[in-house]
Design a protein around this nucleic acid. Structure first.
Lengths: 126, 126
DNA sequence: AACCGAATACGATACAATTCGTAATATAGT
DNA sequence: ACTATATTACGAATTGTATCGTATTCGGTT
């Protein structure tokens, strides 16, 4: 067996495409490529290939019923964000969430953001 | 030109070694390897090679005055943590720090951690 | 001065990521 | 039915990571 599933960490290029899929919802290679093209100079077949690899890794689901396959993210944006954060916390912050928050906030963080975080903390049970 | 510098994101293996260097301070390959060996089964030359590559990338500084070179992290743990977080916030959280914090905290987060975060927020100017 | 052991340097392998060119194929319009 | 075109499939080139074996080199000990 080689790839079938579990928790695969998307690469940078894959994360870029996932962001597009989360935004657009299910989309064809062409649609994804059109969006990618706005900010990057990436060929159509490159996007296709990455989506195919993501499919092998089960990072995306593919609907092959039409000529143009329709791809969609296999895991929600929230699920993926959570695993990425947890991974970083364990690998770079010695498991400390508070340390991560400490580093995440700085002068460039807007008052609005900070307010949102305060609200979030207030709404906690603990 | 090939590598000389700027902000290089360490790979997983490199981050493992950086964590050791931040803990121990300047250390030889052997010292680093001894620590790595406790948890992983990695050869001495593998550690050496990675440190050499990190040196090329300027992720570590090397003191060659003695027979056994002494390596140390080029950037502080804090600096590195900050860039890793900032990178993740921009690539996976649409630039929203509050969303990141939202995902970082969950049931598994201890009361102590949450308290620390509250303190941190209180101590802010904003 | 020669030798031994520890350390670095070098190079090779395997694998994955990224990129794209070309081939094959299927649908839609004529 | 045929052809043009869009789309997928395949595979190759390049680069970087991770790993280690072997060669080389340097210092201290005899």
């Amino acid at each position: 067996m080689t790839h079938e599933n579990s928790t695969v960490k998307p690469t940078e290029a894959e994360l870029t495409l996932l962001n597009i899929l989360w935004n657009m919802g299910p989309a064809t290679v062409r649609q994804v490529h059109d969006v990618v093209s706005v900010s990057q100079n990436t060929g159509y077949t490159t996007v296709l290939k990455i989506l195919q690899i993501m499919h092998e890794k089960s990072l995306v689901i593919r609907d092959e019923s039409n000529r143009a396959h329709v791809y969609s993210a296999a895991k929600s944006e929230t699920q993926t964000q959570t695993s990425l954060i947890k991974d970083l916390i364990s690998k770079a912050f010695g498991g400390s969430t508070s340390k991560l928050v400490m580093r995440a906030i700085d002068d460039s963080t807007s008052a609005q953001e900070i307010d949102d975080i305060r609200q979030l903390l207030n709404s906690l049970e603990k």
